[in-house]
C-alpha cells in the first residue's frame, strides 16, 4: 500500500472541506446542478487525484497519464473542483459553471476542459469508453491505469452490463471501477425504484474482482485501491458505500438534492457547516 502518513490524511481532509465549498459555491452561483452525487463521489476523486493517479496538469495530454472517466457525468462539479485545484485550468473558471460561453458545461466536455478524458452525461456509457482506454494501454504495452466512476442508479442501464462482460472477457486488470453506492436515484431510494441487490454477487458473476469500502474513508480507500492494482487477470469493481450529499447535513441522504441548487439561505448554512 502506498506510504501515506497520518498528516497526509489530515491534509486530504482539509482539502476535502475546501473542495466541498467549491462544489456548493459553484452550484449556488450556477443556480442549477447536481450537488448530491457530486458530494458522494468527491472523496473517491480526492484520493485518486491527490495520491493515486499518475497525472501532470502541466502536461495533461501526456500519453502515459492515468485516465479517469466520470461515467456519472452529472457529478462533474466535484471533478471540476478537483481539476481546478490540481491546476488543470484556472480556478476562476469555476465561477462560470453552466453559464453561456463557459468551458464548464453542465456535463463534462472533453473538447473544452483540460483533464476531462471523456464527455459523459448520458448515463451508462463511461465503462465502455474506459474499456477502450484500457485496451489501448495494453496495446501500447503501457502500465498506465484507467479508472471509472459509475453511479449506482446508472448501472440500471443495460450497456453497463455489456461493458462489464467485455472488461472481464478481455481480463482488463489495468481497469479499476468505482460504484458510488449512495443508494439514491432521482425518484427515490434505489431499492424502491429498481433494486441492484445482490450487487457484489452480480459483479462477481460477471467475472469481476469485487471489493467493498467506505467511500469517504481515505485510509480504507487507499488500501482497497492498492489491492485492486495488485489483482491480476480481471478488472476490479470497488463498491464504495457513500452518502448522497455527504458533508452537508440537510443534503445527506435526500433524493431531492440530486439535482437542485441551494438558495441563499441554504448556501450560507452549507458553508457554515463546512467551516466547522
Amino acid at each position: 500500500m502506498p506510504v501515506i502518513s497520518a498528516t497526509a490524511i489530515e491534509e486530504l481532509k482539509l482539502k476535502a472541506k475546501k473542495l466541498r465549498k467549491d462544489v456548493i459555491s459553484m452550484i449556488y452561483r450556477a443556480a442549477s446542478g447536481h450537488p448530491g452525487g457530486a458530494l458522494s463521489a468527491l472523496d473517491i476523486l480526492i484520493v485518486l487525484y491527490y495520491t493515486v493517479m499518475n497525472i501532470d496538469p502541466k502536461n495533461y495530454l501526456d500519453i502515459e497519464r492515468d485516465r479517469l472517466v466520470l461515467s456519472k457525468g452529472h457529478a462533474c462539479p466535484a471533478l471540476y473542483a478537483v481539476l481546478a485545484d490540481r491546476g488543470f485550468f484556472p480556478s476562476d473558471w469555476l465561477d462560470f459553471l453552466r453559464k453561456i460561453d463557459s468551458p464548464l458545461q453542465g456535463h463534462p466536455d472533453m473538447r473544452r476542459i483540460p483533464g476531462i478524458e471523456m464527455s459523459t452525461g448520458s448515463l451508462g456509457q463511461g465503462l465502455s469508453a474506459a474499456n477502450g482506454m484500457a485496451l489501448a494501454a495494453r496495446l501500447d504495452g503501457s502500465r498506465r491505469r484507467v479508472y471509472v466512476i459509475l453511479g449506482d442508479g446508472e448501472i440500471q442501464e443495460g450497456q453497463v452490463w455489456e461493458a462489464a462482460m467485455t472488461a472481464a472477457h478481455y481480463r482488463l486488470d489495468n481497469l479499476t471501477a468505482f460504484l458510488d453506492y449512495n443508494g439514491l436515484q432521482i425518484d427515490g431510494w434505489i431499492r424502491d425504484v429498481k433494486s441492484l441487490e445482490p450487487l457484489a454477487e452480480k459483479w462477481r458473476a460477471f467475472g469481476w474482482h469485487v471489493l467493498e469500502v467506505d467511500g469517504h474513508d481515505y485510509t480504507s480507500l487507499l488500501e482497497i485501491i492498492d489491492r485492486a492494482h495488485f489483482h491480476k487477470g480481471a478488472p476490479t469493481m470497488i463498491i464504495a458505500h457513500t452518502v448522497k450529499g455527504k458533508g452537508i447535513s440537510f443534503m445527506e441522504n435526500q433524493a431531492d438534492w440530486h439535482g437542485r441548487a441551494p438558495n441563499k439561505e441554504e448556501y450560507v448554512q452549507a458553508l457554515a457547516e463546512l467551516e466547522k
Binding site: Q125, A129, G132, M133, T166
Partner: peptide, 20 residues
C-alpha cells in the same frame, strides 16, 4: 465485442481517445 453494439461504440470511443 460480441452482440453488444452499444458497448462496441463506447469501446471504440475509448480507443480513439487513446490515439487509435
Amino acid at each position: 465485442i460480441g452482440i453488444s453494439e452499444a458497448d462496441m461504440m463506447g469501446t471504440a470511443a475509448g480507443l480513439a481517445a487513446s490515439g487509435y
